[in-house]
C-alpha cells in the first residue's frame, strides 16, 4: 500500500509556482539505492536535468548489496515542489529506493585532498588533517568533515598556498538513535 502523506510538504491547495523561501529550504539530501548498469547514472542525471533540479553534490559507491550502488545527492529542487525530486527518481526502473535525509539527524561527510606549498602545517594538523605524502613539490594532506568544516578547511589551506585541491561529494547516513 502506498504511503500517502496526510501532511504534504507544501500546504494543500497551493500551486508550486513561486520559488520556495530561503535558499537552504530548497536543498534536499537524498540517498538513492540503484541497480548497477550502463545507463543508470545517465537516467538519474537525465531526470534531474529534465525536471529542472540542480545537483549541488553527488557521490557514488558500492552498497552492501551486490550489483547495487548508493548515490548520495544534494539537490536544489528549483521551482518544483520539494518532494518531486524523490518521486521523479522513484519512477525510474533502475532506482530501487530513495530515502530523503533532508533535515534528519545524519552524519554527512565530505573528503578533501590537497597539496600545499608550505611546510608549516600546524594549523591544518590541529584541525585533524592527515599527511599523505611530502616531497619537494609540497605536502599532500587529507581531511574529512561536514560541508562547513571542509569549507573552512579549504579556507585555511589557501593561507598555506594551495598547489592542488580536490573535494568529494557528500556521503550521508542517518544517525542511529
Amino acid at each position: 500500500m502506498p504511503d500517502i502523506k496526510l501532511v504534504p510538504p507544501h500546504p494543500a491547495g497551493t500551486r508550486p509556482t513561486s520559488p520556495a523561501s530561503g535558499e537552504v529550504n530548497k536543498i534536499r539530501v537524498l540517498s538513492v539505492l540503484v541497480e548497477d548498469g550502463q545507463n543508470t547514472l545517465t537516467k538519474v542525471s537525465g531526470v534531474l536535468r529534465r525536471r529542472g533540479f540542480h545537483v549541488r553534490g553527488i557521490s557514488i559507491g558500492p552498497s552492501r548489496q551486490p550489483g547495487r550502488s548508493r548515490i548520495t545527492l544534494q539537490i536544489d529542487h528549483g521551482h518544483a515542489e520539494a518532494d518531486q525530486v524523490r518521486k521523479q527518481l522513484e519512477r525510474l526502473v533502475e532506482v530501487i529506493e530513495v530515502e530523503d535525509l533532508t533535515g534528519d539527524d545524519v552524519h554527512s561527510r565530505e573528503l578533501v585532498v590537497a597539496t600545499v606549498a608550505a611546510s608549516e602545517l600546524n594549523g591544518l594538523l590541529e584541525r585533524g588533517a592527515k599527511v599523505l605524502s611530502t616531497g619537494p613539490g609540497g605536502t599532500t594532506v587529507e581531511f574529512s568533515g561536514e560541508r562547513q568544516e571542509v569549507g573552512d578547511f579549504v579556507d585555511e589551506l589557501t593561507r598555506h598556498g594551495i598547489v592542488d585541491v580536490v573535494r568529494s561529494g557528500p556521503v550521508v547516513m542517518r544517525r542511529t538513535a
Binding site: K5, P8, G13, R15, P16, E81, Q84, R91
Partner: peptide, 27 residues
Amino acid sequence: NVKTFIHVDIDEAEMGKNVRSHIELVA
C-alpha cells in the same frame, strides 16, 4: 474557489506536480 482538491492518479509523481491536493489517492 476550491476548498478541497482531490487527486486520483496511479503515478505518484503527478501528485503535487502542478496542484497540491488535499486528498491524494495514488491508485
